[in-house]
Write a protein that binds this DNA or RNA. Structure first.
Length: 352
RNA sequence: GGAGGCGUCGGAUAGUGGUCAAUUCCAAGGGAUUGCUAAUCCCUGGCCCGUAAGGGCCCCGUGGGUUCAAAUCCCACCGCCUCCGCCA
C-alpha cells in the first residue's frame, strides 16, 4: 500500500502511472477527497478528546461536584456523536487505499495487454521433428503416467492424478529446485497452506484476487502461492537493515480457482486448481537499485534451472497493461512446449 | 468438548481506578565525550494541526462497556499455557 502522503504529493504522476496499467486513475482523486474528510473529522474528535482529558485532569483530587460530573458526561455524549462518523470515514478511506495500484518502474514498456510484452532474452535451441510431436499430456496418458479422466470424475474440472514415474519425476524436479536455492543461500521453508484474510490483504492479493481464492468455513484462504505466507512471514516485525537481504525459498501446493478462464488451457495439465511450486522470496532494503539487482538475480536462478534441464525458453518483460496492480516490474519465463509449438508461462518473477 | 491460568514499549520485567506513555534490566540503532582495549552520558512509537517553534490525540493482545477519569473494573473475541475428556 502506498503512503497517503506520497499519494497527495504525487497525484498527477500517479494517475498517469495507473492509466498506463490500464486501471482507473479516478481512485486517486477519490482517496484524496476522503482523506480530506477524514482529517477534518480527526481534528474535531481530537479537540473534543482534549476537552474531556482536561476536564478529568481538573477533577483529580477530592470528590468532584455533581455539576462537574454532569459536564464530563455531556462532553462524552458529544464525542459519541462524531466518533462513529470518523470510524465510517476511516473504513471508506482504507477501502480506497487498498485499491490504489503501485506505479510500474520507469523502464517498463507501455502496453494495453499481453501483446505489449517484450521478449528480452531467448535461450536454447528449439527442437525440430520430422513428425508432429505429441503433446506432453498425450505422451503421459499413453505411458500411464497421468490420469485426468478419473480425476475429473472425482474432483471436477482441471483435476489430475499423476502416476508411476511421473510421481517421482515431479518430486525430483521440486527437490532439485529446492536444493538449488538452498545452495544459493536461501533458507528453505514449508508454509501454512491456509492463511488468515489479513495476510491476503497485506500481501496485496486482496482486494483484486478475492475471486481467485478458495475460502474455508473459518474465513481463511487457501494460498495461491507460497509467496503469501513468505511475504507475510515478518508481519508486525521491525527488521534490522543489517539482516537484509533475507532470502527464503518455500515449497507448497498452490490453489487457484481459475474463474474467468473457462475453456482456456483445459488440456495438458497446464492451468490447474492445484499444483506444487517452489517459490523464491527476498526482503531487501527499500531501495530501487538494490531491489532491481535482486530482481534480476532471482530471474537468473530460475534460468539456471531451465538451462540445467536443457529446456529452451524465452524471457518476457511484462508491459504496463499486463502486470499486477501491486507490481513494480515483472518478468515471465515461458518454456518451449514442443507439442503445442509455442512458449508457455512456467515461471514468474516480480518485485513490489 | 469441559475446567483453570496468562497476554504491559525489540526481549525480560514493575505496576490493582487519577500521582502512568508507564518501573527496572538487557539488546539494537543514532548522538556526545574520553587515549588505555572500551567506558560513561543522552536520544530512539504512530497520527493530526503547523513553514517552523510548538501544540494536541492515540497506543499496555483486539474490540466494546462502566466511570468525570481505565494498563488497572466488566463483557466478547483472538492467542498462548496447564489439567480432564475425545480422537489417532
Amino acid at each position: 500500500m502506498l503512503d497517503i502522503k506520497y499519494i497527495r504529493e504525487n497525484a498527477a504522476s500517479l494517475k498517469k502511472a495507473i492509466t498506463a496499467k490500464q486501471l482507473n486513475p479516478k481512485i486517486v482523486d477519490e482517496v484524496i477527497r476522503v482523506d480530506g474528510d477524514r482529517r477534518k473529522l480527526i481534528g474535531s474528535v481530537e479537540e473534543l478528546r482534549q476537552q474531556i482529558n482536561e476536564h478529568a485532569a481538573g477533577l483529580k483530587s477530592g470528590q468532584p461536584s455533581a455539576e462537574a460530573i454532569a459536564k464530563g458526561r455531556q462532553l462524552k455524549e458529544k464525542l459519541k456523536d462524531i466518533e462513529p462518523q470518523l470510524a465510517q470515514v476511516e473504513k471508506a478511506f482504507l477501502d480506497l487505499m487498498y485499491q490504489v495500484p503501485n506505479p510500474a518502474a520507469e523502464d517498463v514498456p507501455f502496453g494495453r495487454d499481453e501483446t505489449g510484452n517484450q521478449e528480452v532474452k531467448k535461450w536454447g535451441e528449439i527442437p525440430k521433428f520430422d513428425f508432429q510431436p505429441k503433446t506432453h499430456d498425450e505422451i503421459m496418458e499413453a505411458l500411464d503416467l497421468l490420469d485426468t479422466k478419473r480425476a475429473v470424475r472425482i474432483a471436477g474440472n482441471r483435476a489430475f492424478f499423476t502416476k508411476n514415474d511421473l510421481v517421482l519425476l515431479e518430486y525430483a524436479v521440486l527437490t532439485y529446485a529446492l536444493k538449488h536455492m538452498i545452495f544459493k543461500g536461501f533458507t528453505p521453508l514449508t508454509v501454512p497452506w491456509m492463511v488468515n484474510e489479513d495476510a491476503m490483504w497485506g500481501t496485496g492479493y486482496f482486494p483484486w484476487g478475492q475471486e481467485d481464492h478458495y475460502k474455508t468455513q473459518d474465513d481463511q484462504s487457501l494460498i495461491g502461492t507460497a509467496e503469501v505466507p513468505l511475504t507475510a512471514y515478518r508481519k508486525d516485525e521491525i527488521l534490522n537493515e543489517k539482516d537484509l537481504p533475507e532470502k527464503m525459498v518455500g515449497i507448497s501446493p498452490c490453489f487457484r480457482r481459475e474463474v474467468g478462464t473457462y475453456g482456456k488451457d483445459t488440456k495438458g495439465i497446464f492451468r490447474l486448481h492445484q499444483f506444487n511450486k517452489v517459490e523464491q522470496v527476498v526482503y531487501t532494503v527499500a531501495d530501487e537499485a538494490v531491489t532491481r539487482e535482486m530482481h534480476d538475480a532471482l530471474l537468473g536462478n530460475s534460468e539456471e534451472l531451465l538451462q540445467a534441464l536443457k529446456l529452451p525458453y524465452h524471457v518476457l518483460l511484462m508491459c504496463t497493461g499486463d502486470m499486477g496492480a501491486g507490481q513494480r516490474r515483472k518478468y515471465d519465463i515461458e518454456t518451449w512446449f514442443p507439442g503445442q509449438g509455442k512458449y508457455r508461462e512456467t515461471h514468474s518473477d516480480s518485485y513490489f
